[in-house]
Design a protein around this nucleic acid. Sequence first.
DNA 1: CATAATTACGTTCGTCGTAACCATA
DNA 2: TATGGTTACGACGAACGTAATTATG
Lengths: 94, 94
Amino acid sequence: MELRHLRCFLAVAEELHFARAAERLHIEQSPLSRAIKELEEDLGVRLFIRNSRSTRLSRAGQVFKESVPRICTALQQAREGADLSACRRRKQTR
Amino acid sequence: MELRHLRCFLAVAEELHFARAAERLHIEQSPLSRAIKELEEDLGVRLFIRNSRSTRLSRAGQVFKESVPRICTALQQAREGADLSACRRRKQTR
DNA sequence: CATAATTACGTTCGTCGTAACCATA
DNA sequence: TATGGTTACGACGAACGTAATTATG
């Protein structure tokens, strides 16, 4: 799994539409479709139920969607924490 | 930032030695060095203080290291949550 | 001068986009 | 038959490994 997969998942989970999600991500539908497929294979679980007229979250997809924000928050906190302590250090240093 | 970068960071942060960390990751020292550099550039912060004889965490690196486990936990929970609900669904379905 | 990290360089693999394809309402 | 998702395929960029380089204790 890579963060790219999570970004793709989130877009599709929110749009429930591959074409719109792809547009939002500034990529084409084809790599998006593949990314979701890769993620599903990695997890061993189908995240979306899609027939050729509609896309909706599977049960597993719903649960997964709920946990993604926690990952994003953790990532952001890591970023900010590092940045903040570097700023403080820069202050101390001069 | 990609998860690859976090895996690399964690290995170096724990080993405090690029060669050992690389070995542990089953990659060479060279891509590892680059990955750390990329991460540092992405964060805009130096994570390790390294001269050619030793490697140690910077202040920002220490803070970052503390936040990485939270990310890993969140990722694992997402994985398990999806997997679990898929199992439950399979049970229900039959 | 030995050890540890980085840079140079060519190769390989992954990801992309275009286009053809398949499925269903 | 129009719409929406997937598969095929060639091109490009990112990541790798080997080897040369730099730096310092």
